[in-house]
Design a protein around this nucleic acid. Structure first.
Length: 570
RNA sequence: UACCCCGUGGUGUAACGGUAACACAGGAGAUUUUGGAUCUCUUAUUCAAGGUUCGAAUCCUUGCGGGGUAGCCA
């Protein structure tokens, strides 16, 4: 017996998912959801692509088993594309956690079909070969406020066009001598409809088709037809293609014999504060050596953030959190960092590392004695187990954990004051030794055996601070790279407005290399492992530069900071 | 200044003609062997003006603001 129950609160759908739900309900897409992620292999994928990947592959997962997502390389411009990029793109999509199964395609696979479709348009009088130069075509196109004028070649006969187009394919023309144009409307307020170029001659070697072609289709022509050939139901792209949609539809409408009629929809691209999301500009950072490469941990590329230690799950969560709209938003970096910390807090082993050491001598601790303390690996995760950490008479603590002249609110070590060494005992600073310049070089302290194991003897003032430490004799020295945001400006693209150069906003302190004193258990660290340096931040063993027994650490993100010493205003 | 798209707390989103809510960020407190985490509480929102309606963030008009578009790039 079925009982009428209150309908479960429908999860709110974004506008794309709403459209898909409607299409599914009306049967407009044949009960299937087929999407595609169509990068051009001309660079590395970045966080903006992650948004698109999560959308397209996510949709396929949500509608399984009546759905799939294709990975298609939009390789119609051989002058910019390389196999290096097609390989990195596949690696990045997989890393993000998605799988295209057998559905790997290349627009270049369709060159022959696309060519025959062009012949068809020519025969219908819907396309013509234009002999004008690029400059003449540009002039003829008109401007945003004035209509274009027809090319003198616009009314060539289909047979003449066909013969010319065949000769273009045969290699009889130099680059720029002839193009194929759609015959639409030179007076259209939409520039894309003013007889857009469909094919151009390019005597270039293609990374897949080699020298088989010297005639290459334009994106606007190849994309809708490739979508149709693959049976894509929903072709999702970013807002700047909005004005291309009428052309997309025009081609689907006028080419006969297409197996499906895909629909293009547009959403806003991702913008993030303190970074760039333009392949062209990222390429410039790489080319000019402003970063170490596409996978520099400061880069917003997927290979960069992966090397920095951002977990794929955090990126997926972030993509879910930012939503999907047509509003050209600017998302705060700290939302991404929030998801990174949330994930890392769950999975990271804790470890003690001192980045900026000050020597502490425990004057009442027996010389030569070493003890091992059992310390949990992750208090958030019982199953993570524990480790033995050596403790001895001489230690290092963080220089920032001691203040000779403390400011109000400082809870850590001060002259004559007491602080807890985490998982060890409390110490009192008895003497401060400084060098000739007054810099603190050593703290002579006494420890209190009654405060072991977190004990708080009654009747004593409360110890507010707990700090991390390492045994001086046992600590390892490891290279640590402290990464910070690449740019100092929220919107680096508009920051260098005067000079018109985003490099003006580069953060000079985006990378600081230091040598850290770290507990010896770290010698076993695997490459590509996440750690939390307690009270400092999350760190990742660099997959490229770490060696067995000799890890190199990248700071993924700092811990959220509570107390900060405010610079005292004069 | 032609056409298209978009305007909801500081930021990003939800509310689909019927009580403006969630997350991040900010603030306060509790708790804590990480000034982390966790848990409470809290500050703050419909671009503007008209109109339709019993009722408008939602529909209409105008204005204002933001974004996009004039590659033989994608």
């Amino acid at each position: 017996m079925s009982v009428e129950s209150t309908p479960p609160a429908a999860p709110s759908l974004d506008f794309i998912r709403e459209i898909i739900a409607e299409d599914l309900a009306s049967g407009a897409c044949g009960g299937q959801v087929v999407t595609r992620f169509p990068p051009e292999p001309n660079g590395y994928l970045h966080l903006g692509h992650a948004k698109s990947i999560c959308l397209n592959f996510g949709l396929a997962q949500e509608h399984a088993p009546h759905a799939r997502c294709h990975l298609r390389f939009d390789d119609t411009n051989p002058t910019k594309e390389e196999v290096e990029y097609v390989e990195s793109i596949q690696e990045d999509v997989r890393w993000l956690g998605f799988d295209w199964g057998t559905h790997l395609y290349y627009a270049s696979d369709y060159f022959e079909k696309l060519y025959s479709f062009a012949l068809q348009l020519i025969d219908k009088g819907l396309a013509y070969v234009d002999d004008q130069s690029a400059e003449e075509i540009r002039q003829g196109r008109g401007t945003l406020t004035s209509p274009g004028v027809a090319s003198p070649y616009r009314d060539r006969s289909p047979s003449e066009n066909r013969a010319l187009f065949e000769r273009m394919r045969a290699g009889e023309f130099k680059e720029g001598e002839r193009v194929l144009r759609a015959r639409i409307d030179m007076g259209s307020p939409n520039m894309n409809l003013r007889d857009p170029v469909l094919y151009r001659v390019l005597h270039a070697h293609h990374h897949r088709t080699g020298d088989a072609w010297c005639l290459y289709p334009m994106y606007d022509y190849a994309h809708p037809l490739s979508d149709a050939l693959e049976g894509i139901t929903h072709s999702l792209c970013t807002l700047e293609f909005e004005h291309h949609r009428p052309l997309y539809d025009w081609l689907i409408e006028h080419v006969d014999g297409l197996p499906s009629r895909p629909k293009q929809r547009e959403f806003a691209r991702l913008n993030l504060t303190y970074t760039l999301m333009s392949k062209r500009k990222l390429l410039r950072l790489v080319r000019e050596g402003l970063v170490s490469g596409w996978n520099d941990p400061r880069m917003p590329t997927l290979s960069g953030i992966r090397r920095r230690g951002y977990p794929a799950a955090a990126v997926r969560q972030f993509c879910k959190a930012i939503g999907l709209t047509k509003y050209p938003s600017l998302t705060e970096l700290n939302l991404l960092e929030h998801h990174v910390r949330e994930e890392l807090n769950r999975i990271s082993r804790r470890v003690y590392a001192v980045l900026n050491p000050v020597r502490v001598v425990l004057t009442n601790y027996p010389e030569g004695q070493v003890e091992f303390l059992e310390i949990p690996n992750n208090p958030e995760d019982e199953g993570a187990g524990s480790r033995q950490v050596p403790l001895s008479r001489e230690l290092f603590i963080e220089a920032e954990d001691f203040m000779q002249h403390p400011v109000p609110g400082f809870h850590r070590l001060v002259p004559g004051g007491e602080v807890r060494l985490k998982y060890a005992f409390c110490i009192i600073c008895q003497e401060v030794i400084t060098d000739a310049n007054g810099a603190v070089v050593e703290l002579r302290c006494t420890y209190d055996d009654a405060t072991r194991r977190g004990a708080k003897p009654v009747g004593r003032p409360k110890v507010k601070g707990t700090i991390h430490w390492v045994s001086a004799a046992h600590a390892l020295e490891v290279p640590v790279r402290l990464y910070d945001r690449l740019f100092t400006a929220e919107e680096p693209e508009s920051a260098g407005e005067q000079e018109g150069d985003f490099t003006a906003a580069l953060n000079p302190a985006s990378l600081l290399e230091v040598s850290a004193r770290i507990e010896p258990s770290i010698a076993e660290a695997a490459p590509a492992a996440h750690y939390q340096f307690e009270r400092v931040g999350y760190f990742f063993t660099d997959p490229q530069d770490s060696r067995p027994g000799a890890p190199v650490f990248n700071r993924t993100v700092t811990l959220k900071e509570g107390f900060t010493i405010k610079p005292t205003a004069a």
